[in-house]
Structure formats: structure tokens, C-alpha cells
């Protein structure tokens, strides 16, 4: 199994004003195996291993939920827009089909 799975990077604008719509950019390290590829040496199918569930919480409240499939690329990049109207933590949770859960929390403090 490759090392470094589930490392997460979340990027926010440097300064956030209250009520501003900000772009949140996230990157997670994951192989996203489709289950359709064959190993060249052993000639066996590489089992599917991909993120299929992403949830985003803002201040403890679920704001959006995504279902991902095998069509998403390796090391997926995701960006979304968020109205920063309160000082609260932003928690993003990725879950894969083998039971792995990866999460990261960043604090959003609008001025």
C-alpha cells in the first residue's frame, strides 16, 4: 500500500471578512483505484479503493454532502464556495470504501 494516504491540505484566503463568499480549496492524497485496472506483473485485478463519501461541516452543522465514484481522479482536488458568516470551525470528512476516515478541521475567523 502506498504511503502517505489521507494527507490533507486545506487552503483559505488570508483574510476573511464577515459575510464574504470565500473559496475553500482542498487536496487529499489518495490512490483512487477504480477496480478496473490489472497489475502488469501478477495479471490480477487491483481491488477498488476510492473515496465515496465526503461531508463538510461548518460550525457543527452539515452544509453539504457529496457522493464520489471511481470516476474521480487520484489525489482529488475539491474546491467550493462558502459564505463566512460566523466564527466557527470548518470540518471536512472523507470516507473511502475500505473504511478509512480522513478528516481535517480549520478555524474560520471572519474579521
Amino acid at each position: 500500500m502506498p504511503q502517505g494516504i489521507g494527507k490533507i491540505k486545506i487552503r483559505l484566503p488570508r483574510t476573511v471578512r464577515k459575510g464574504q463568499v470565500i473559496a475553500v480549496k482542498t487536496l487529499i492524497l489518495h490512490p483512487m483505484e477504480t477496480g478496473l485496472r490489472t497489475d502488469k506483473k501478477t495479471k490480477k485485478k487491483i481491488p477498488a479503493y476510492y473515496i465515496n463519501d465526503v461531508s463538510i461541516y461548518y460550525g457543527g452543522q452539515l452544509i453539504t454532502h457529496e457522493d464520489w465514484t471511481i470516476a474521480v481522479s487520484a489525489n482529488p482536488f475539491m474546491s467550493f464556495y462558502l459564505k463566512a458568516d460566523k466564527e466557527a470551525p470548518l470540518k471536512i470528512v472523507w470516507k473511502d470504501n475500505k473504511g478509512g476516515v480522513y478528516q481535517k478541521t480549520v478555524q474560520i475567523t471572519p474579521r
Binding site: Q3, G4, K9, R11, L27, L29, N75, F77
Partner: peptide, 13 residues
């Protein structure tokens, strides 16, 4: 450039 470089994760390691 916008999406960022996944190799940056290796720097901490």
C-alpha cells in the same frame, strides 16, 4: 497551479 501540488505532502515527511 490553482489545484496545488500533491508532492508538497512529502516535504513534511
Amino acid at each position: 497551479a490553482e489545484e496545488g501540488n500533491p508532492a508538497e505532502f512529502l516535504l513534511d515527511d
